[in-house]
């Protein structure tokens, strides 16, 4: 088992000391009176066809949002817009009181983003990569290394910290990615399938970490396919299907409306993918 409490403490407390002056200055730019951490109005995105259709939602500070939907529903696109990675969109997106279009860099300083695909410079070692990430956030080198080492140890990667990441399993890479998203102690976390490829112990650890980060007042925007985790950790659940927000509420509220019993059942009912049993029977007929 991982020392969960220790890991949470490390992320919660030991991250504060290494903010640079630049970060403090920019943090000071954020309006003091802030009720919504994320605010989205009429958000749309089009490539060849429309991917997002006039999304409207808001996320309060310290809230954990479970953002779920089938493949291709528009989850990652929403997150990329909110993290300033896709600047070309319609509607309004406000993060930490700042307009994403105008203040992308300032927003990036105070958010953490764990992308769907474990994109890393994999010829580097985890320590080298984390040092690099720390540098991009303007963190002090020595303190970054110290913290990176502690976090690597907590995630069970201490023996691999000097190995190149191209030899790592998907789960190990995902752990490094998680650490890189937490290294600068972000106020708002955007997690796109953060549990992908993690082993059971690491999943438990991440769940605990998320709960403790919530207690520490962080806002978490969490996109995942793993329904039971979303159900357990989310304050509120938003379901997106074909670019449209089709449900938004606490699990209890949604459950009451849909009379579904579980998030999985609710999800299949709402996204119209509920004919699994029929499909399974059809498959057996075909392979016969």
């Amino acid at each position: 088992m991982y020392p969960i409490r220790e890991s949470v403490t490390a992320i919660k407390n030991k991250t504060d000391f290494c903010h640079s002056k630049k970060t403090d200055y920019l943090t000071a730019l954020i309006p003091l009176k802030m009720t919504a951490a994320i605010e989205v109005q009429q958000l749309s995105k089009r490539y060849q066809e429309k991917i997002l259709h006039e999304l409207n939602f808001s996320v309060s500070e310290g809230e954990i949002i479970g953002y779920i939907g089938p493949n291709g529903a528009g989850k990652s696109t929403t997150i990329k817009i909110l993290t300033g990675l896709i600047p070309d969109f319609e509607g309004d997106a406000i993060v930490a009181g700042m307009d994403v279009r105008q203040h992308a860099i300032e927003i990036k300083r105070i958010i953490g983003y764990i992308p769907e695909n474990a994109a890393l410079y994999d010829v580097l070692t985890p320590l080298e990569f984390l040092e690099f990430v720390g540098h991009l956030y303007g963190l002090e080198k020595d303190k970054t290394i110290l913290k990176a080492n502690e976090l690597l140890k907590l995630f069970g990667l201490e023996t691999s910290r000097n190995d190149r990441m191209n030899t790592f399993s998907k789960g190990m890479r995902q752990k490094v990615l998680l650490i890189s998203g937490l290294l600068h102690n972000p106020k708002i976390l955007f997690l796109d399938e953060p549990l992908s490829g993690l082993d059971a112990n690491a999943v438990i650890l991440v769940k605990e970490v998320l709960q403790q980060l919530k207690l520490a007042g962080k806002t978490i925007f969490y996109s995942s396919h793993i329904m039971d985790v979303v159900e357990k950790i989310s304050d509120r659940i938003m379901i997106i299907n074909q670019g449209k927000l089709i449900a938004n509420g606490t699990f209890a509220e949604l459950n009451e409306q849909a009379q579904s019993g579980s998030l999985e059942q609710l999800f299949t009912n709402l996204t119209g993918t509920g004919e699994h049993k029929e499909k399974a029977m059809q498959l057996i007929d075909i392979i016969k």
């Binding site: 994109a119 410079y121 990430v133 991009l136």
Partner: peptide
């Protein structure tokens, strides 16, 4: 495009 996924999410213009 790995720069876009690794570097651009960080506060880098």
């Amino acid at each position: 495009t790995s720069d876009n996924t690794i570097v651009l999410p960080k506060p880098v213009s």
